[in-house]
Design a protein around this nucleic acid. Structure first.
Length: 906
DNA sequence: AGGTGTTCTAGTCCCTTAAAG
DNA sequence: TTCTTTAAGGGACTAGAACAC
């Protein structure tokens, strides 16, 4: 039986069987456009679709169970077989079968569609399209059941092609309130973004685009409750408030967004996706929480084919193929054509599965290489929405563009510099949920760029060529703002977009090493404020000529920035760990000297000049009510300055470098804060990865190693049969003093049954492996953080967590008895501290940026009072929770302080 | 604690300018 | 040269959230 449904029919049927809208849970419905129809031409009769014209709001619904995959069946089919029966569209199924990619294993082809014409031929049709897109559909390719395709939620053509006239075709039905089943909205209501389709200029409003307007016909999507369509969106689940953002615990049903390698971007709906195929389609849908395919439509227009370059590695090449006719006989999948041509191969030949997840902290330099931002971007850049046209590339303050250079590379081959938009708050640097990098092209752009999606995050890749001294001018990077409501609706997303408008450009490069290894380097730019208003009103400090002075104050500090005024105030403040402000003092501003971009400030005295240790405080520039800059860091040093010297920090680099433990091993903020000044366990851990490869016959040699690098190698298939597992490069040479982070795990690789995920840290002293997690525990997927004096060479082969699992693990660490023992590295430090003169000072390994000379008596406190900045982790269950933090603090104190540790950092 | 008015923010739209075809 | 198209970007409007009282 062939059944065609339009919206009304479907609603009636659902009503008849007692299936309310909100029960709709189709896993997937296929929709077919008549293969031979001229959609743009208004529709010819299509024999495969009976008498219905292609352009009519009538379509066959195909239960993808014809693919013999349960995930493709309407979930209520079991309860309502009569409905299912009506969905048994034999013709459609037949067509599906005919296009079933039996030969996919050899050369699958995936077509990206639907054509713009498909979307252009009428709102009603669009409505039906929208109706058909059921929540959380899944496409499972026979023979590739472990692969799934999901539509990108946030990636508009505008962001994938500078020709943005087609941008509104992109929509995120599942993330959109208007179609969310939980929204209680009429499923026939159109998502405004979908409604707001126009083919004219991106700046052309719907009202000015003939035949495309939604506003004029009054057909309002539920997203836009206002009389002004598309004005503001609301969340059907209720908007999260700013307080919720600041304290995710306030969010009903809040789940911690723990810092796993996969980050919060990979939500539990991961069963719908697979990094491989998704990444292959330039990642559209890969790991994008809440992303679903629009539909599978056969169209006669553009064709993008996707060839598995290395399927096992999740690596695909995607190419545009206009010559559909010559290949039409071959099986292919048709996927929305909303992503135009930048579907290209990547410069970086390393499979995504072999690369560290974007959430991972990666150093910016090693002994050999350094990735450096030679020209920082401007601190303000107004991001554009999908509904807008591009607002251009991020620029440098001087008017040019940011410049990034890789130093130390001597190879002949160009490398790919990856760029993505990262967060800029005090937490872990990770891909920003509310912003995506936007590729700019055009004559003004001199840099070739490629787009790809890595674990749900859009990444631009531009070549770093030896002939250009491995320097790249970043003139092709714009910033796309995703709508808060869309992102907040993602399952697992705990951040809110409101006031979450600062980003950083993150640059990453993977330098190949012998033996299929590669060294990954990453550097993040200064924060960029992306909101419109702030660019004109909020003061922003870009530079301060000093970052510390005596507790007596009195020194003049010159602030360079923007939007300063004669009325600008500079206020110093101190907060406790739980965020409570305990001190505030307005500094004196020399108004005579001050300029719109420069303030001359006299540092006030600290509230307690008798302190015996350094105190970190913040200050900000205030232009008036609610117009204050982001807090800047400042350190008051005690009058008796201890003999600890440290080089100035780039806080954000420090953030970056210091987050190894919280992010990977699940430790709390303390790890971060304690390592800000360079005596860094986490780095040590991470550095050990490299040390393993560099071999350390001389124990002292490792202390001269300035910078850790993560050396990833594509693990052999001996590891659980999973390709792309991370393994430390080189052999596991136990270092008797260094803890070793063994990270084996493939972010895109699901852990198979029986594999027990874990992130393991080894400490080889006692030759005993302690690994995380109790396999029998309910949260067995969560790795445990273990600091132990144990080591086992076999551990290098231990399967380790997939990022989501690790992610979850980090959040669940508090559920486990955490065992943290003294770090061998600390022991080493202390040993060094006891060394004879000349040996008494050591250079902390791990980060050449932050060489720190430490005196013995100052060592302990360095871990404890290094950073009095408000500790977000303490407040935020989003990561680990205060309880764990407290426990950790105890442990850290007990492990790293002496009995009378009153150490200082100056 | 709840109500009310004000302020702020997010998202969208309008408009201008410049460059290119 | 003129017109059209498009990208870029500044500005502003509005609903609703946040804040202040």
């Amino acid at each position: 039986m062939t059944t065609f449904y339009d919206q009304k029919d479907l609603e009636e049927d659902l009503s008849r069987v007692g299936c309310p809208d909100e029960d709709l849970d189709f896993e997937y419905l296929f929709e077919y456009e008549p293969p031979c129809s001229d959609v743009a031409g208004g529709g010819q009769d299509d024999p495969s679709l009976g008498s219905h014209k292609a352009s009519e709001p009538v379509f066959p619904l195909e239960d993808a169970s014809s693919y013999s995959h349960k995930a493709c069946r309407p979930s209520f089919a079991d309860q309502h077989p009569e409905v299912l029966a009506e969905y048994e569209n034999q013709e459609a199924r037949s067509y599906l079968e005919s296009t079933r990619p039996i030969g996919l294993a050899l050369s699958p082809r995936i077509e990206i569609t639907p054509s713009r014409e498909h979307y252009s031929h009428g709102r009603e049709s669009l409505q039906n399209h929208q109706l058909n897109i059921s929540p959380r559909p899944t496409l499972t390719v026979p023979g590739y059941e472990n692969l799934a395709y999901r539509e990108p939620q946030c990636l508009s053509p505008a962001s994938s092609n500078s020709s943005t006239s087609w941008q509104s075709e992109n929509y995120s039905p599942w993330a959109s309130p208007c179609v969310s089943p939980s929204s209680g909205q009429n499923p026939g209501d159109l998502c405004p973004r979908l409604q707001n389709i126009h083919t004219g200029s991106p700046r052309t409003s719907p009202g000015t685009s003939p035949g495309t307007g939604v506003a004029e016909d009054g057909c309002l999507g539920p997203r836009s409750p206002s009389s002004r369509p598309g004005s503001r969106s609301t969340s059907p689940q209720g908007k999260r408030t700013y307080d919720m953002y600041r304290n995710p615990a306030l969010i009903p049903g809040h789940r911690s967004r723990s810092p796993s390698p996969h980050g919060g971007r990979e939500h539990p709906g991961a069963q719908y996706t697979h990094g491989g195929l998704a990444d292959a389609t330039n990642g559209f849908g890969s790991g994008q929480p809440g992303l679903v395919p629009t539909k599978i439509v056969k169209t006669a227009n553009h064709l993008y084919t996707l060839y598995p370059e290395n399927h096992a590695e999740g690596n695909y090449l995607v190419s545009s193929d206009q010559d559909i006719k010559t290949k039409a006989a071959e099986p292919f999948f048709v996927i929305p054509q909303i992503w135009p041509k930048p579907l290209v191969s990547s410069i970086c030949s390393i499979p995504v599965a072999s690369l560290p997840p974007l959430e991972w902290p990666i150093p910016r330099r090693t002994d050999q290489y350094e990735l450096r931002i030679e020209v920082q971007p401007k601190p303000h850049h107004r991001a554009h929405y999908e509904t807008e046209g591009s607002r251009g590339a991020v620029k440098a303050p001087t008017g040019g563009h940011p410049v990034v250079q890789l130093h130390g590379y001597r190879g002949k081959e160009p490398l790919g510099l990856q760029i993505f938009i990262g967060t800029a708050d005090e937490r872990i640097l990770k891909p920003h949920a509310f912003y995506q990098v936007h590729r700019i092209t055009g004559k003004t752009v001199t840099t070739t760029s490629f787009e790809k999606i890595i674990h749900g995050t859009k990444v631009l890749e531009i070549p770093l060529e030896p002939k250009n001294h491995m320097k790249a001018i970043i003139d092709c990077v714009g910033i796309l703002k995703l709508r808060n409501a869309d992102i907040e609706l993602r399952k697992g997303e705990t951040d809110v977009g409101r006031k979450n408008t600062r980003v950083r450009l993150v640059f990453r490069v993977h330098v190949p090493q012998p033996g299929e290894q590669h060294v990954s380097l990453q550097v993040a730019s200064h924060p960029i404020e992306c909101s419109q208003r702030s660019a004109h009103e909020l003061p922003m400090v870009e530079k301060q000529d000093m970052d510390h002075c005596s507790v007596l104050g009195g020194q003049q500090m010159i602030l360079t920035g923007q939007n300063f005024s004669s009325d600008s105030k500079v206020v110093f403040m101190e907060k406790t760990q739980d965020g409570q402000q305990i001190w505030e003092m307005e500094a004196s501003v020399d108004k005579d000297k001050s300029q719109p971009n420069m303030l001359f400030v006299e540092v006030p005295a600290y509230r307690d000049t008798s302190v015996c240790q350094s105190v970190k405080v913040n200050f900000c520039v205030i232009n008036g009510k609610r117009k204050r800059s982001q807090p800047q860091h400042f350190t008051f040093t005690p009058l008796a300055v201890p003999s600890i010297k440290s080089e100035p920090l780039d806080e954000f680099e420090a953030d970056h470098m210091g987050f190894v433990i919280p992010q990977i091993l699940g430790l709390s903020s303390h790890s971060y804060y304690h390592n800000q000044r360079g005596v860094l366990y986490p780095e040590n851990n991470m550095a050990s990865c490299q040390r393993l490869s560099s071999s350390l016959p001389n124990p002292d040699a490792r202390f001269q190693q300035q910078s850790p690098a993560i050396v990833y190698s594509r693990a052999g298939k001996s590891v659980g049969g999973s390709p792309g597992l991370y393994q430390p490069a080189g052999g596991m040479i136990p270092d008797p003093h260094c803890s070793v982070l063994v990270h084996t795990g493939c972010p895109a690789q699901p852990v198979g049954a029986g594999q027990h995920p874990s992130i393991i840290q080894f400490s080889p002293t006692n030759h005993q492996l302690v690994r995380a997690g109790d396999p029998q525990a309910p949260q067995q997927e969560s790795p445990q953080i273990i600091y132990s004096d144990g080591y086992s060479p076999q551990a290098t082969l231990t399967p380790s967590p997939t990022p989501p699992q690790a992610h979850a693990a980090a959040a669940q660490v508090q559920n486990y008895p955490t065992v943290i023992q003294q770090q061998p590295y600390l022991q080493k430090v202390q040993e060094k501290a006891h060394s004879p003169p000349g040996m008494g000072q050591m250079e902390a390994p791990g980060d050449g940026q932050r060489r720190v000379t430490v005196k013995e008596e100052n060592l302990d406190q360095a871990y404890l009072d290094d950073d009095p900045t408000p500790r977000p982790y303490l407040k935020s269950p989003d990561l680990l929770g205060a309880r764990l933090a407290r426990e950790e603090e105890k442990v850290w104190r007990s492990s790293s302080t002496g009995a009378n540790g009153t150490d200082r950092i100056g």
